[in-house]
Design a protein around this nucleic acid. Structure first.
Length: 283
DNA sequence: ACCAGCTCCTGCTTGC
DNA sequence: TGCAAGCAGGAGCTGG
């Protein structure tokens, strides 16, 4: 589920209860999610101080004392649920464990952080903090779309010579890291680009609109707490609300919301995934 | 090297 | 109401 805005929302929710605190108990309730957890993960997390929480693409990176980093990937259905701590306007009792709570971290401030993932496409890993460049899941990621490394120039390079549709190219994490199916659909609508257009054939002028549109959509979605369709919750359990602002995603058959456009939203399948777009104003 | 399709897993929604 | 099929926000792997 979670794309960059949802992951950033979760990171922001975890930071105040985890950063600067200590993990006093780590309950690893199964041996794996998508892949086996690192050996002795529970023991290695127990007693560890948390320095800070970062995000890279769709991954949360928890820097620990002792120069190790815990990587958390939420996959499609992962949630990090905080209880036992005052968060914003919410005061939560410690929640009893739920089905699919696979890893439970108890902090020294009384907060409990439960990693719940029904579909088990998520992952956790521990790696030396200074070896991020060789961590398998991080090694081949492209630039952060909200960072300085993402520009018209880098996106032009990423698209150069690509025969694949622009939809697929924007989902390719090596070209730009953090976009998923929802936000790619929204960005392409915002820029009037058909998802079917070959990436390598997109003009520089259009890439000049694509880069700021990607940043805008992501910033707006982060401000809205992400998009809650089925699974996404903020760490305090609140729903995100960017889904109410979707222009195309999930709107098959509905009227295009672009002013002056009389088209209706279509759904096509590209590489096995739904693309929503307006055939009239996206060319 | 590139690209499309398949796959992992559970649960919710849809249609008969 | 019941049941099966279809679908889902990710991303690694396979084979053409």
């Amino acid at each position: 589920m979670p794309e960059l805005p949802e992951v950033e929302t979760v990171r922001r929710g975890l930071e105040p209860v985890m950063a600067g605190r200590k993990i006093i108990a780590a309950d690893v309730r199964r041996a794996d999610l998508r892949w086996p957890f690192p050996p002795d993960m529970g023991a290695r997390l127990t007693g560890r101080g948390v320095l800070r929480l970062r995000r890279r693409s769709k991954y949360i990176l928890v820097d620990l004392e002792g120069d190790e980093t815990l990587l958390i990937h939420l996959g499609m259905s992962g949630r990090m649920q905080v209880s036992g701590s005052k968060l914003g306007n919410f005061e939560h009792e410690i929640q009893p464990l739920e089905k699919h709570d696979h890893v439970v971290l108890d902090m020294d401030n009384g907060a409990r952080v439960a990693f719940n993932d029904a579909r088990r496409f998520g992952a956790m890993d521990l790696f030396p903090t200074d070896q991020e460049a060789s961590q398998k899941l991080l090694a081949n990621l492209g630039p952060e779309p909200l960072g300085n490394g993402f520009s018209v120039e880098t996106l032009c390079q990423g698209f150069e010579g690509k025969k694949a549709p622009v939809k697929n190219a924007l989902l390719d994490q090596r070209i730009v890291a953090g976009l998923g199916n929802i936000y790619v659909c929204e960005v392409l609508h915002r820029t009037g680009i058909s998802p079917k257009r070959q990436a390598g054939a997109i003009s520089v002028q259009r890439i000049e609109t694509l880069v700021p549109a990607i940043r805008e959509v992501l910033f707006e979605a982060i401000d809205a707490g992400g998009s809650s369709l089925r699974d996404h919750r903020q760490a305090d359990g609140a729903l995100g609300y960017f889904q109410h602002r979707f222009q195309v995603y999930g709107r098959e058959g509905s009227a295009c919301r672009r002013s002056g456009c009389s088209g209706s939203i279509a759904r096509i399948v590209q590489s096995g995934r739904s693309s929503f777009y307006c055939p009239q104003c996206q060319r």
